[in-house]
Design a protein around this nucleic acid. Structure first.
Lengths: 148, 148
DNA sequence: CCAATTGATGGGTTTTCACCTATGATTGGT
DNA sequence: ACCAATCATAGGTGAAAACCCATCAATTGG
């Protein structure tokens, strides 16, 4: 019997469909690899934010990543247990908890980044170097437009 | 006081991050619009499959869309209640239920497609016509590679 | 013609995610 | 000095998605 594995052209003709599908695969593959290191995507986002912008009060992390404050608490707690971030009470405002990266955190982020690039190579395999740059540029503009 | 709304460059430098982010937004926006018409994305996928490939036995729909058989049953049941598909027992093999589009289904799919294109216009707003084609072509190749 | 298989269906489970609330500590304004 | 707002934290809720299983009707192969 025929194995009807082909996708409906009505869908694949939509760029947004392709976007959402490939995006989902990218997300899943990276999530799997991160899970092997006991972190989720949000953990990586927190580490990235700390690496790029320095220490944050938790409320600022929440604002930057568009997360709920209570969820940030949990993420930071978990990263703390892994020794990748350090929490200190802000002496100026003792309600706030300042989160900063540790050396272990920096090393961990480097590894997570390597995983991400590996996934990227898998997924963008059919594209040449210049085409990957094109894609990155196009998506970059779309993305920039989306949170404006 | 500063409003730290900027995204971590460590993340935005990853094409896979941009993919998964923009894909998620595309998905959400379309899902919202479909919800206003009492359907979900999978309903649209079912309609698209029927439109593109003609009537299917439910098991073939499940295979094509990589869905669980029981979930297909539910989707088809819901589309049936909306009068968009018709179920008939296959006379040749009376275990099977053949699903076919109705005229109402065809009309509904056309509207859903219009919604999808509207979302597409929103999301790809910053890109010109030729750039949209470039993006579609690149994503098409990536997508084709992914289910191989 | 009996046994094993297949298809549809109903009824779950599990996991994940975003979100929401209450509480206690701390601060700032007045 | 007091009241309202802010922050971190713990705990819980609700929706959605992907699966999984048992059952029944129908078919097929030996």
């Amino acid at each position: 019997m025929d194995a009807p594995t082909t996708h409906p052209p009505t869908l694949t003709a939509l760029t947004t469909y392709l976007l959402s599908r490939t995006g989902k695969v990218a997300r899943q593959r990276l999530a799997e690899r991160l899970a092997a290191r006991d972190v989720r995507l949000w953990h990586m986002a927190v580490l990235a934010a700390l690496a790029d912008f320095g220490p944050h009060a938790q409320r600022d992390l929440a604002l930057r990543l568009s997360l709920d404050r209570s969820d940030v608490t949990k993420l930071v707690e978990e990263l703390g247990a892994l020794g990748q971030v350090a929490r200190t009470r802000d002496p100026a405002d003792r309600r706030r908890v300042t989160v900063a990266m540790t050396e272990a955190g920096r090393a961990a982020l480097a590894e997570l980044n390597a995983e991400a690039e590996a996934v990227q190579d898998e997924i963008l395999a059919p594209l040449g170097t210049d085409e990957r740059e094109q894609l990155a540029a196009l998506l970059g503009r779309v993305f920039a437009h989306l949170d404006a």
